[in-house]
């Protein structure tokens, strides 16, 4: 079990997981979002090679209205 922050809220993962598996475990099922890990963009192509570790911070963003 590891502690992480997702979109500003503290939560946990069962273990150190790659981004793809972490998103699945966190129940982010909506399509069309982008991910940043510790303030750095993570491209979809690198999800499986990017590991989420203890105390990491993830941002998961999706389209909204903007000015």
């Amino acid at each position: 079990m590891i502690e992480i922050i997702v979109n500003g809220k503290r939560t946990s993962l069962s273990a150190e997981l790659n981004i793809k598996d972490a998103i699945k475990e966190l129940n982010y099922t909506k399509v069309g979002f982008a991910v940043a890990l510790n303030g750095t963009f993570v491209a979809i192509a690198t999800y499986e090679n990017t590991l989420v570790r203890d105390n990491d911070s993830i941002e998961i963003l999706s389209p909204v209205q903007g000015g």
């Binding site: 979109n7 099922t29 909506k30 069309g32 998961i60 999706s62 389209p63 909204v64 903007g66």
Partner: peptide
Amino acid sequence: TVSLRRQAAGEGGGNQFW
């Protein structure tokens, strides 16, 4: 113009606005 904001978990499907 459009933007990005934090997505809540468990919201399945697509994005109506987009």
